[in-house]
Write a protein that binds this DNA or RNA. Structure first.
Length: 527
RNA sequence: GCUCCCAUCGUCUAGCCCGGUCUAGGACACCGCCUUUUCACGGCGAUAACAGGGGUUCGAAUCCCCUUGGGAGUACCA
């Protein structure tokens, strides 16, 4: 027996004969007599390397909850040198659309979560779109029928409805108990099938308890009689989620299923399918859900839930990864800010919190700001340049000047867009700020003196850093202006504002023509 | 209804598995102070939580049970 140690968790890869003692698959209670476990699919070689998957339905844009699940899967795979697979679950023909598949793939790329195998990255275990695997599901469903582990069901929707209502009235669980589960009717079923009648296929649900050893939930016991015979193949021939998911995970040799907690109850059905197929289930990690301020599962109504909305709002991929990770997982060093590389190096399935998390936009913004601050100014410049109109004077500055400007505003910014506003405001805007403090400074006689003095100076191109020093020197020595009067006066005359970055940093970066215009505006005001 | 899951500052969380080091730590937000002759950044500080009740124990945030609250599932959706 081989043990694969994953971040301290000992996953047991036991021979199939010991199936019922393997972690994650531990049937208890009485066996269902007539059903014999059969080996249709062989998995579980001892050297199996980690393979995980992200399996979205292309029914909309990538949701932040989905992005988070994809992220956790990706991190886990990369942290143990495994493979990350993208599988498209498009068996719901009504709602699935190929443009959503494209959009979600694009979002994944944008986040930097590159998958090793997927619809557009063929691998050994394709195809990776469920709609292209329909024959496979039919084949396995048929095998289960042949083995007596599943059966055809000809009940109509109305019949099922009546059955359910009756069960409810009697206070029994609303499980299927129609005649078709009785092997006696097999012949009739075959005859009707041969006559071309359509039927769904149901799995005989073993009536016994199941135990799941989950990486985040711990030991979860599903009691006996929790679910009844459920459909695995619809009468239309399309498989149902709990069936195709298992077939695919098995055939794609998925070793770990990391997904939302909303799938926890489904797991018992999937365990039944694994058992019917005589296969060892993968390991599971059911991660807590993201919820809204009302503590409800996130829905479209909650505003910004799709990733594109965040990208449009100016959130950086790195910041999204960072923040999303923090919602339900914690860094072993209790760090709040980290990048994908750091995350992969420290990823650990044991560090998930079990409770659902509300996302807080304020912290999200702060994380974004931190990621901008960590950037080299040259990179920041590259990222903000496209936000200016093509003929904006900012773009005409030298690279050195532009980078210095970026560095100047870096600490007060949360989004790239903020740079644009700040630069416009402090570097190019010539109108005066109208505040009470401005009025006060303008009312000082010293301010008029400063303005008078400055108007005698020549302004050209960009002022050297020394200019400001010379001016203050002169104003102090010769005119006797000092302290607040001096600095606020200079600030108001040169920037047209009562607050802003350090003058020594700001003035050399401001075009002299702008300074001149502001000064003229001040003089006009004082006159 | 039934089944399962969850419960630490307003929010995200550390601690829980392996009880003492927890008068419960960090981060965001909020407030105050310092610094900066401005604003911001930065630094320091304040407010703020173990849902409730029982047990077990010398000792419980930590283990057990109950209650309450919240969530998910209960489909020929995924």
């Amino acid at each position: 027996m081989a043990y694969l140690s994953l971040n301290g968790y000992d996953a047991q890869y036991a021979p199939l004969a010991q199936l019922d003692r393997v972690a994650g698959f531990e049937p208890v209670g009485r066996e269902f007599e007539s059903l014999r476990v059969r080996h249709f699919i062989q998995t579980g070689d001892d050297t199996m390397s980690v393979r995980v998957r992200f399996a979205p339905s292309p029914t909309g844009h990538l949701h932040i909850g989905g992005a988070r699940t994809a992220l956790y899967n990706y991190c886990f795979a990369k942290s143990v040198g495994g493979k990350f697979i993208l599988r498209i679950e498009d068996t719901d023909l009504e709602r699935s659309r190929s443009e959503y598949e494209k959009a979600q793939i694009q979002d994944l790329h944008w986040l930097g979560l590159e998958y090793d195998e997927g619809p557009d990255r063929p691998g050994e275990y394709g195809p990776y779109r469920q709609s292209e695997r329909l024959e496979i599901y039919k084949e396995y469903a048929q095998k289960l029928v042949d083995a007596g582990l599943a059966y055809y069901d000809f009940c109509t929707e109305q019949e099922l409805q009546v059955m359910k209502e009756q069960a409810e009235k009697q206070g029994k669980p609303p499980h299927y108990n129609g005649k078709w589960r009785n092997p006696e009717f097999n012949q009739e079923a075959m005859a009707r099938l041969a006559a071309g009648e359509k039927a769904a296929i149901r799995l005989r649900a073993p009536q016994k308890a199941y135990v799941l050893q989950d990486h985040v939930r711990g030991r979860v016991v599903f009691p006996e009689n929790m679910v009844g015979d459920f459909i695995i193949l619809r009468s239309s021939g399309l498989p149902v989620y709990n069936f195709c998911c298992v077939i695919d995970d098995l055939l794609m040799k998925i070793t770990h299923v990391i997904r939302g907690e909303d799938h926890l109850s489904n797991t018992v059905r999937q365990l039944m399918v694994y058992e019917a197929l005589g296969s060892k289930p993968p390991e599971f990690a059911h991660v807590s859900l993201l919820i809204n301020k009302d503590r409800q599962k996130l829905s479209k109504r909650d505003g910004a839930t799709s990733l594109v909305q965040y990208t449009n709002d100016g959130f950086l991929p790195g910041a999204i990864i960072n923040y999303l990770t923090l919602l339900g997982w914690s860094h072993p060093e209790e760090k709040d800010i980290f990048d994908l590389k750091d995350l992969i190096a420290n990823f650990d399935l044991n560090r998930f919190s079990k409770a659902a998390a509300i996302y807080d936009i304020a912290k999200f913004k702060w994380v974004n700001g931190q990621h901008i601050q960590m950037q080299q100014s040259s990179l920041t410049l590259k990222n903000i340049s496209s936000l200016f109109s093509v003929d904006h004077p900012f773009l005409k500055l030298t690279d050195e000047q532009k980078e210095k400007i970026c560095a100047l505003f870096k600490t007060q910014v949360q989004f790239y867009q903020d740079f644009v506003a700040l630069i416009e405001n402090f570097i190019f805007q010539t109108e005066l700020n109208e505040t009470e403090k401005m009025q006060e400074v303008l009312s000082w006689p010293s301010t008029a003196q400063i303005a008078q003095f400055l108007s005698t100076q020549s302004f050209d191109g960009h002022l050297p850093e020394s200019a400001l020093g010379q001016w203050t020197e002169y104003l102090k020595k010769d005119l006797g202006i000092k302290g607040k009067q001096l600095f606020m006066g200079l600030r108001v005359c040169l920037t047209g504002k009562d607050q802003g970055p350090e003058l020594v940093d700001l003035i050399p970066l401001t075009p002299a023509s702008v300074l001149k215009q502001r000064l003229a505006n001040i003089q006009k005001r004082l006159a």
